[in-house]
Design a protein around this nucleic acid. Structure first.
Lengths: 318, 318
DNA sequence: ATGAAAGCGCTAACAT
DNA sequence: ATGTTAGCGCTTTCAT
């Protein structure tokens, strides 16, 4: 079923059919009726490829993430989706190879990139045609917009405040993988705070952002008899693992050891004790990003793209 | 940059450029070289819309889900993605309005539908052109394939076994929303087991699949002094909420009350006690689905699509 | 081995 | 208000 079939059935030319279907002016009401009826009866829907080819746009927005796991992406995607839906854009979430393919081949009008595996040079190259928002790196360019969690500042301020207030001396940092820019920025903030606090030593444990790695880290501290006053974890999931390990060995939180994390994921309310964390409003961030991008696409001049909201949420674990 | 520019720069015709770029035979090696070099220098990539229009396919597979939240989708999507990547298909995950748009407008060659909001008639209508796998309903049709968790059977067998073994008398069912087919099938299995066990009464608590609703349900049981021998929850997340409530009030699990769930999500290993559940291998299911669909698209005759693997995982909470 | 040209389905400029 | 037609960028048939 193509527009040609519809036109024939309605007894009009292709262009008239097109006008009618696209709700354009200067079509006789009766003609419009006939065309719409024909389309309905033929079960006709326009072919996206043809339309996109002709119009040189697709109303598709790509969201390229480095994996579908994790509660962070969920909220972010929900926020993006909500906003795009309002503005009548299609969301295309993808991960891995297909992300690059879609960028290259112009399957999307714009993209939100949250995948460190997509190289800078690709982003620079493709941003000429498609505006790109990057969430995981600082990158300059005419059509490139960067929005980032202020990892370093947030952790710095948090550690500074909490340590001053509670007087922790002995502190352990549970780290994400070394190749995560995010993770390392958080560590920088941590180090800066310690320096300012004049704390010379700390323990560093290398983990991989999973609950399980945090769980093991917790056990290691216990076994090595190296339980600190405060465990700061580069994300909530590892912190949850740490808490689990301490709970199992009846090490009291926060009396014996305090624990804090980063992100503010849903489950932090359902651990015992509830996890103190630096919470990012991922849902709202997603909305902002999507809203921004649609404005860019429509040449609506805009406030610059801002960084996501964050706030320290003190619960029970410190 | 179009193929025309490449052809011109390489000093060949458009068709020759196309052949060279697509690695077709009967192109002189030197010519091929020149074309590829020109493409490289011009930073050329084919336009997906044009190519898809001409070839009447896109190598895009749509995965249409009803929301990005939840650990279940994560695993399923990872499995699908892995397999599609292997077979050089693009994954397009979408939710809400854009899902229907993409189905209608043939933006995808095939789809996996896991979104009850997409009506049956749409699926039937569009399956003529694009094979569709549905995961959340039973639906017949030439190009429609259905794969479903055997909710009723699994819950039935589990309840039967566990009650016989442990002798629970007093049982409470924590339910998902009434409009969830999944949820209701699980309840059917539950009822069938009770009938067979000749247990006449049980409590039913209406929740909504979230941790929080389970948490509240747990508190209600305590307040109303209606703590049963076994709480069976239609999914793991509500069960986690229930456990949390009991833990806070020092009601011992499983001594005073047993708790079990459904799905086998990641965190069931990190509750105290660890949650006994009926675990679905969502990752593997995703792989199967994607593999199946690519075979259908390539007319490789196949074994029929199977239902996902499930197994009862007895941990500490019963 | 290479090129000319038709056509995928659609939109829109132009003519009537 | 309606129709004719060019052309979006590509693949592929046919001719050379």
């Amino acid at each position: 079923m193509t527009i040609k079939d519809v036109a024939k059935k309605a007894g009009v030319s292709i262009s008239t059919a097109s006008y009618a279907l696209n709700d354009r002016p200067n079509v006789h009401p009766q003609t419009r009726e006939r065309v719409l009826k024909a389309a309905e009866e033929l079960n006709y829907f326009p072919n996206a490829h043809a339309r996109n080819l002709k119009s040189q746009k697709s109303r598709n927005i790509g969201v390229f993430i480095n994996g579908f796991g994790g509660p962070i992406y969920s909220d972010l995607l929900e926020g993006i989706n909500l906003e795009l839906q309002k503005k009548n854009y299609n969301i295309i979430v993808s991960s891995g190879k297909s992300s690059s393919v879609m960028l290259r081949q112009r399957s999307v009008d714009a993209a939100i990139v949250f995948d460190e595996k997509i190289p800078n040079e690709d982003i620079i190259r493709f941003s000429r045609r498609q505006p790109i928002v990057v969430l995981d790196r600082v990158l300059q360019g005419e059509n490139i917009y960067s929005s980032m969690i202020e990892n370093e500042r947030l952790v710095y301020e948090f550690i500074l405040t909490i340590v001053k207030e509670k007087g922790y001396k002995n502190i352990t940092y549970v780290s994400g993988p070394k190749n995560s820019v995010y993770g390392m920025d958080r560590y920088k903030g941590f180090l800066k705070a310690l320096e300012e606090l004049n704390i010379k030593n700390h323990n560093f444990i290398q983990c991989d952002f999973t609950i399980n790695s945090g769980y093991e880290a917790g056990f290691n501290m216990i076994e090595n008899n190296q339980i600190p006053d405060l465990v700061y974890s580069a994300n909530d999931e590892m912190a949850i693992g740490v808490i689990k390990a301490f709970n199992e060995k009846n090490i009291e939180i926060p009396n014996r050891v305090a624990v804090a994390g980063f992100d503010g994921i849903y489950i932090t309310d359902y651990t015992t004790p509830k996890l103190t964390t630096i919470a990012i409003n991922y849902f709202e961030w997603g909305r902002q990003l999507a809203g921004f991008l649609t404005r860019v696409l429509n040449n609506i001049s805009v406030y610059p793209l801002v960084n996501p909201e964050a706030k320290v949420v003190i619960k029970e674990s410190v």
